[in-house]
């Protein structure tokens, strides 16, 4: 509601009466795939969107708590760890109990230590990919939103092709060409994400530019850069932010998959995905090692998704009002 809304005035548009079979362009076609995927069909608020509620969003609170806990652990891991990461003095597969609160893995490393480092790696991968994908995507999508005619078509087609190139395969390709490392994973996931972000940005920019208040602003002599700064960016960032939050969750999952396949951060860095891969052989004897990383992964991803949903509830002023 904070955006300058054009006044609702049925009198302003008075096209000629009733042609049979209007030109098709004048009717809104169903939203194209990109939009369905990126805006309409984003996961919805936890309790269902029918709920009409107050301003506070429990979704956001729960999401912040879940994701915040992981962030806190990651921050702590920077300054303090129960054991050195490669300390194997605890013996192999020690059961939970002091001094190894969660036990040790099959190489004798402290599980809690590994999990804490894993939190740091998961967040690094997620935030790194989103930062890369977000910056590249917005930088590409913003000018693309201004393109018209054949240039517009070309950009749209190009982005579609890039998106069709599956993230995971792109990541594998990059890892195959470079070395398996966290950087490669972040680069691959970020690049794949940038195409999605660019397409969303382009669609959002186009939608804003079609609004009457842009025309009004332009007629009153505002320059394009100012239009972008004052109207376009403020209008697209809420949706972008929500989408980037969702992408963060997907990036964390993608990194976990890559490191499970041995294509993520190499051994001294304990990624949750690789921890799960290593614990697979000892799942019956030391179940905690095969369960805890998975639960933390889910906790982080659910948390981030809930934050995204909560942000949408707060930021999206165009929710359906009851009649």
């Amino acid at each position: 509601m904070n955006a300058p809304e054009p006044p609702v005035q049925p009198l302003t548009s008075t096209p000629p009466p009733e042609p049979l079979a209007e030109p098709l362009t004048s009717t809104p076609p169903p939203e194209p795939l990109a939009e369905r995927l990126t805006s309409t069909l984003l996961p919805e608020p936890f309790g269902g969107r029918r709920r009409t509620g107050g301003r506070r969003s429990p979704t956001l609170v729960i999401g912040c708590l879940l994701a915040g806990a992981i962030v806190a652990v990651a921050v702590v891991s920077l300054f303090w760890l129960p054991f050195p990461p490669d300390d194997t003095s605890g013996g192999r597969l020690a059961p939970p109990g002091p001094p190894h609160l969660l036990g040790t893995d099959k190489l004798g490393r402290d599980l809690l230590t590994q999990l804490m480092i894993g939190a740091r790696i998961a967040l690094t991968a997620g935030i790194g990919s989103v930062a890369l994908g977000g910056v590249l995507g917005v930088a590409a999508g913003l000018p693309a939103g201004f393109a018209t005619r054949w240039l517009d078509d070309t950009i749209a087609a190009l982005l579609d092709i890039l998106i069709a190139f599956p993230t995971l395969l792109l990541a594998m390709l990059l890892v195959a060409a470079r070395e398996a490392s966290l950087g490669s994973a972040v680069l691959a996931i970020g690049l794949a994400m940038s195409a999605i972000v660019a397409r969303l940005t382009r669609v959002l920019v186009k939608r804003v530019l079609a609004q009457d208040f842009i025309t009004a602003s332009r007629t009153s002599g505002t320059s394009w850069p100012r239009v972008v700064a004052e109207h376009v960016l403020p209008n697209i960032w809420p949706t972008l932010l929500v989408n980037l939050a969702l992408q963060l969750g997907l990036a964390v999952l993608a990194e976990a998959s890559l490191s499970y396949l041995g294509l993520g951060a190499p051994p001294p860095n304990a990624s949750w995905g690789r921890m799960l891969q290593e614990a697979q052989s000892t799942v019956l004897t030391a179940p905690l090692g095969a369960v805890a990383p998975g639960l933390l992964l889910i906790m982080l991803v659910v948390g981030v998704n809930l934050v995204a949903d909560g942000l949408r509830d707060v930021a999206d002023p165009t929710r359906r009002r009851s009649r």
Binding site: P17, E18, P19, L20, A21, E22, L24, T27
Partner: peptide, 15 residues
């Protein structure tokens, strides 16, 4: 006859 064979988006709002 034509309207009956048309889809809603193919005719005008008044129609």
């Amino acid at each position: 006859g034509r309207v009956a064979k048309a889809y809603p988006h193919e005719i005008s709002g008044g129609q």
